[in-house]
Design a protein around this nucleic acid. Structure first.
Lengths: 212, 212, 212, 212
DNA sequence: GATGAATGAGTGTTCATTCAT
DNA sequence: AATGAATGAACACTCATTCAT
């Protein structure tokens, strides 16, 4: 018997886990976060027992799915930050990712309060959120430096607008081009551009201002 | 606050019904749309039986609450349209209402698919939505006429952006000033202003473009 | 205010009570003895409150309906006993009454055990049953005296056979002629005639043997 | 006692199912067809969940119990038809079975209308009823051929009388000898014998005449 | 490890009964 | 006295979770 490797499950167990998370994400999108565990198992093609071997309870499963979504998002933004020469371009591309990612991610923001709290309490999710925050802060500063992003907004403002667009994107592949979201995004980006803007109330928001 | 509609209910029954809908709206916001009916009844200070006398099942209750939210919203926008001399002002004020209304309204867009379908199937809700649509179309046309709203957006675009802000407003009175939402709204309004804007993809959206 | 007469309710109250019992009997037949009290009230054209003023609970109502059925039956048999010159004729006519009565009577024998027990515990019903018993005993003795009823049966046997036919008669007016029941009855009466019969097991049954 | 049909159920699940049906039959007899599902489960020594895994709802359970009763009856009559040299003997024995079977069968005829309708709608029950009909028709014809059964009755008459006796047999083991039923049966059989009978109204009934 | 049968707590809903109007 | 609104206990049924195979 091979010693249990620290981080990685055996290949098949890993595959199993991924299958379940995929099925769960789709089921959450189709039915809601209260979809029966049995149905998730069925969609994943495993028995409920197996599902429970991988995830202690529904909460754990939801948290894992959210974590995985956040992770994917983070990777994408990281890549954009590296590829794009200008910070503004990276921001634009990042916000467009929501568009691209929307099909595989559940509306994790639309969780019933109890599950939302569980997600907030999760350390892994917190860490990802911190990395995301740091990244956005860096991009925002750089974009303002280069004069493309209006100066009176802070990373908190950008993140919040980002979340708005992200949450509104449909989770089903009904309209693959999703022109509605694209246009909304373009209007918002226009509003974030420097030049000729009206005054915003209050002061530029930090990321920490968001869960006020 | 709601004008005493001459609906066929005795005064006390009417009050009772309003109490229940209030309690339900709060409970949906606090716990989620799957909050136990017993808890809604407890919050409303009535027995479950009374709740079920007024609303045949959870679905009916949810639909009634959504309907009432939409109705309140419609009243507000109507009033704004009459008070404000400029269409642009009416639009701005309308979008700000989300801020004001958010405390009494459930996040009706965050319903599990089954309930969302029930709401869509409801005739009363459909009628309100139609009136809302008509109103927005009128305001959008007028605002473009007066040169305050960029010409390359349609009522569908405006409605979608409106919904974005509306949905993101917190339902609890955690931050009474909600500077986060106010600033996001200001940015979006900036993006909707005429002058110096980038091209939007596609064509101006009609309201009918929204749900495919 | 007239003093409450001992036995009779005021004419309108009386009518009220009869309406309710009629509606109840029909409802029991249509839906079962577990039909909601509200529906009985509705069918009777009164409020539930009125129903409960007349009958303390469902049990009382069922008992009253059964009592009334038994009473009607007793009257009929009494009349037959007086009209018919021969006891046999009275018995035949009595058994046929079930046929005639079936449309207005619930299948009181098909009560769930708890209600059946309540009926058995009711003194009024017991008294009617006693009178019925006495009457049947007299008719049986007389019919055997006149040589028309086989000698090896007792009043218990006759009553039981009577109950068999009675219970099997349909309660709805589906087949007004109910040839099925008529023929069954005729066969049974043939079996009760003197002459050429096979031996019956045991001894002639008294009425008291029935609820052995 | 039921031969192990090769139905696709694991041995323990099969046993489980039988336990539940047994418990249900007894509970229906003791309490009525409206006995709480929880009590049936308790009597069967399983959790409610298990009960619901086997039977989708009360209706399914009732239908299954009725089906099983009919099946047992059919087996018995089949055996009698094979063992008895004379058709008359087979009929006599068949009618006596009600006596023997009564303890395990619910009064299926005493179902509230809604459940009765469900039973009538069940295909399995219909098939059993058809087989039973065919068998009775054959026995009746044979008995008339051999001159033991009066010629002016049809299979419908015999079945109806059979049902009468059957329904009247007590479901509890109060009187193990049930002399009351035995004697009633004997009288009825006497009425069905050839010779010296009065005229029956109408014409011999087919089985199809029974439920209009 | 995987499976899916069993469990029973939790919830939606109904309806008998009470009681304010 | 009549009404029907209110109440909450009771019951049907679901589903998260456990565990024997």
């Amino acid at each position: 018997m091979p010693p249990p490797t620290t981080d990685c499950l055996r290949a098949d167990a890993r595959r199993n886990r991924d299958q379940i998370m995929d099925a769960a994400a789709r089921a959450f999108a189709d039915v809601g976060s209260d979809v029966p565990m049995d149905e998730i198992a069925r969609r994943a093609g495993v028995g409920v027992g197996t599902l429970y071997r991988r995830f202690a309870d529904r909460e754990s499963l939801v948290v894992a799915v959210v974590r995985s979504s956040l992770d994917a998002l983070l990777q994408k933004i990281r890549a954009a930050a590296e590829d794009e020469p200008r910070a503004w371009g990276a921001l634009v591309q990042s916000m467009s990712f929501s568009h691209e990612l929307r099909l595989t991610l559940p509306r994790t923001a639309d969780l019933p309060p109890a599950l939302a709290a569980a997600v907030r309490a999760d350390a892994g999710t917190a860490r990802l959120r911190a990395e995301l925050t740091e990244l956005v802060e860096r991009l925002v500063a750089a974009a303002q430096q280069e004069g493309s992003l209006r100066a009176d907004v802070g990373p908190g403002d950008v993140t919040h607008l980002f979340a708005l667009v992200y949450r509104s994107a449909p989770t089903r592949a009904e309209d693959p081009d999703d022109i509605v979201t694209s246009r909304a995004l373009a209007v918002i980006l226009d509003g974030l551009t420097t030049g000729g803007n009206t005054d915003l109330p209050g002061r530029p928001l930090e990321t920490g201002d968001l869960r006020g």
